[in-house]
Each structure stands twice: as structure tokens, then as C-alpha cells.
Design a protein around this nucleic acid. Structure first.
Lengths: 209, 209
DNA sequence: GCATAACCGAACCGTACCGTACGGTACATA
DNA sequence: TATGTACCGTACGGTACGGTTCGGTTATGC
């Protein structure tokens, strides 16, 4: 990715159309995402859809890409940070992660990508995963690395540590929500889950070990 | 569900058809699972399909249910078991879990259920989750409880502990495979991942804490 | 031998959807 | 005013699929 080769760089109108399409997807699933329905909901013609996005698959990819482009960089970890600061940052990561994956938009996009993933069309899945990692993975990995150099954490492979943290936070909630099961309990529970996960993570990777 | 109301209890012929349909699903995704294709592949008529399963949705449900009925109870945890025996049992659980969720059949069924989960049609997802829990969850939870009473583990809520163990084992591998990403590395890595996860789990819930 | 049932193969119907084409409109530019 | 551009709304072709119907075939039981 020398120069981020193609920033699709849609027009305002096109972005509005994509947002409307995403709305349809969230509330009705992929089955509701027909070109006619999008055109009707967005107040544009099917001809324009095909001119802009080429194809239905191109349209789906554009929806996912657009959402992926909405990730906010977030603040860098403070250069000097206390041990409690690290814990707080990790807990915030956990809360963000849980909120994100349990959101309607995330669930709808993941379902869409998973549905398309059958026949080696890795396209959507790759975009989603890349953006997901970009949003949370890379930054949190950097945070963990920082924690290591500051002596608060003890881990040889930050990637590995991040992966463990992810597992402690998410457990089997994601797949259960994707399958349509329980809709992730209240915000209070979310806070509790985040705290527990971080406590366990520190127990595993804390410096006192 | 007072008396497990309806054991669909298919005929041999019907089971063979369902297996053939599952084969189609695994290799082509839901899109390839048309009634005509199933009839052709299984050497039966569409009329019979509709007579037996009523509906395409009924057919899908039958496929999932049939697979769910294949779960093997597995052995109960030994009444008296050493600490190393517990560790070995947990590692076997971890290996089984990783093998299962990374299998073609599991991935195809999960993709199917997730694709149908958009519009509150929890049907398939519920069946899958129930069978999944039946296969591994309940039994392993019992194992953890046993570990507690024997004094090897220290946990107040076995469900919670099981959930943690699941997270440590699976991490983000499941969602990544569902999205079509990397195909879970070699069996050697699998073994290593299982061992690491169990080591971490014991570190969290071991009796010495 | 004959009736009944189960099933196969194929044709068929209605519908939904993708992709395209066409007429009409608003607007900008020469 | 004429011309080009971008767009909307609608309608159409082609296709694929779910579900039904029907004739023909095997097999079982009386």
C-alpha cells in the first residue's frame, strides 16, 4: 500500500446513498438490500447506482468500505502513564470493543461479510477485518507495548497479548450475537465484564509475574 | 419442551439426502443450496423434498438439526482425577473446540445460521448454539465444577469460568475464519494454542490463588 | 392380476431480482 | 436559444429459484 492506492473518495451524494443503504441493511438484513429498494430509499435511480458502483457487489463493497472509513484514530497513549492509567485505558478499550461488536451496524456488516465469505470472496471480510484491526487492534497493541516498556506488563509478543485480551473481553458473546441470540445485557453488565476481563488480563501479563 | 416434543426422527433415505445437502452447503455456501441442486445431487425429486421437509426453511432446519444430533456424548469426567488429569482434560477440550470450529462443516453451518439470523429468525442459530453447548459447554462446565470440588480450581461461578476458558482458547480465531480469513494454522500450532490457553486458565483459576 | 402407495423426472407457474434502456427534467455552458 | 451533462422514474428483458403438478415407474399387499 505505497500511497493508499485507491481512496474511492465518493461524492457527498454517493455517501448519502451508501448511508441510506446501510440503514436498509441494518434493519432488514441482506435480503432487504435490493438495488430497487436502495434506489427507492435513497431517492436515486438504479441507473445511477450502477454508474457509480458498477455492480451490486461493488455497491456492497462500497457500503463496507465507507463504514470502515469512519473509524476515528483516537488518542495516542500518553508518553508517561501511570499503572492505573494503563488499566483505565485497557478498560476503555474493552468497553469500546464490547459496544462496537454489539452494535446493530457492526452486527449487520459482519453478517453481510460472513454471508459473502462462502466462496472465497474474501473481499468484504478482509475489508471489515482490516478496519476492525485498524480501529482497535493496532492501537491497543501499541498500548500494550508501551505498558511493557514502562514495566507494567510482561509479555514477549504484544500481538499474542492483544489476542488474549480480545478473548478475555469478547469470550463467546460475538458469535452468539451474530447467531441472533441474546442481545448483550445492560450497560452495567458491560462495565462489569470489561473490568473483569482487564483484571484477568493484568493477572496474566502483570509485571509481578 | 416438556418431553423433547418432536424428535424429527428421519428415515435412512432422508438422512442420506440431508447429508448430501450438507455436502453441497459446505462446498458451495448457501447460494449453492437450491432445492433443484439438492434433488439432483441426492437423486431424489423435488416433490419428495417438499413432502418430507415441507419447506426450504424446513429443509435447512433439518440439515442443522441432523448435524446437531450427531454430537457424541463423550466420557464423563473421572470421579477421582489428578490435577494433571484435569489439565489434560482441559487441553483435550481446547483441542476439540479449536478443531470443531475450524472445520468446514462447522463453518458452513455457522455461516448459514448467521445469514438467516437477520430478521429475528433465531431458529437455526438457536439450534446450533444449543447443540454446540451440548457438545462441549455443559460437559466442560461439569468438568470445571468437578475441578472445584476436588480443590484444583477456585471459582464461584463455573459458567463464568467456562466462558473465560472459551475466550482464552478461541480468541478472535472464530470470527476471522467465518469472515474467510486465515485457515487456522497447522495442527502443531493448534496444540500449542490449546496448551497456552489452558496454562493461562489455570493461572487464573488455579487453587493456589 | 390389481389396487394402492411411494417416488422419480420433467415440465410448469409465479415471483423476485439484477442489470439495462428509454423518455423526461433540471441545470450549466457556449 | 441550442447543446451537453447528470440525473430521476419507470419499464423491460433475462434469469434464477421456490413451489406445484403430472405422467410414468417400481414395489408392496390383497
Amino acid at each position: 500500500m505505497s500511497t493508499e492506492p485507491e481512496q474511492p473518495d465518493f461524492t457527498d451524494r454517493q455517501r448519502a446513498v451508501l448511508d441510506k443503504a446501510l440503514e436498509l441493511l441494518v434493519e432488514g438484513g441482506e435480503k432487504a438490500l435490493t438495488t430497487a429498494a436502495i434506489a427507492r430509499a435513497a431517492g436515486c435511480s438504479k441507473e445511477s447506482l450502477y454508474k457509480w458502483f458498477g455492480d451490486r457487489d461493488g455497491l456492497l463493497a462500497a457500503i463496507v468500505t465507507r463504514q470502515a472509513s469512519k473509524v476515528i484514530p483516537g488518542a495516542d497513549p500518553a508518553a508517561n502513564m501511570s499503572e492505573d492509567g494503563l488499566r483505565a485505558a485497557l478498560e476503555e478499550f474493552a468497553r469500546n470493543l464490547l459496544e462496537t461488536i454489539s452494535g446493530d451496524v457492526s452486527l449487520a456488516l459482519n453478517r453481510l461479510a460472513i454471508g459473502q465469505a462462502s466462496k472465497s470472496e474474501t473481499g468484504l471480510g478482509a475489508i471489515l477485518e482490516k478496519s476492525g484491526r485498524a480501529r482497535i487492534g493496532r492501537q491497543t497493541t501499541a498500548l500494550l507495548e508501551k505498558g511493557c516498556t514502562l514495566g507494567y506488563l510482561h509479555c514477549e509478543d504484544p500481538q499474542e497479548a492483544y489476542s488474549t485480551l480480545y478473548g478475555l473481553v469478547v469470550r463467546d458473546q460475538h458469535i452468539r450475537m451474530l447467531l441472533g441470540g441474546t442481545a448483550q445485557a445492560s450497560a452495567k453488565d458491560l462495565e462489569l465484564v470489561a473490568q473483569t476481563a482487564v483484571k484477568q488480563f493484568i493477572q496474566l501479563y502483570g509485571a509481578q509475574n
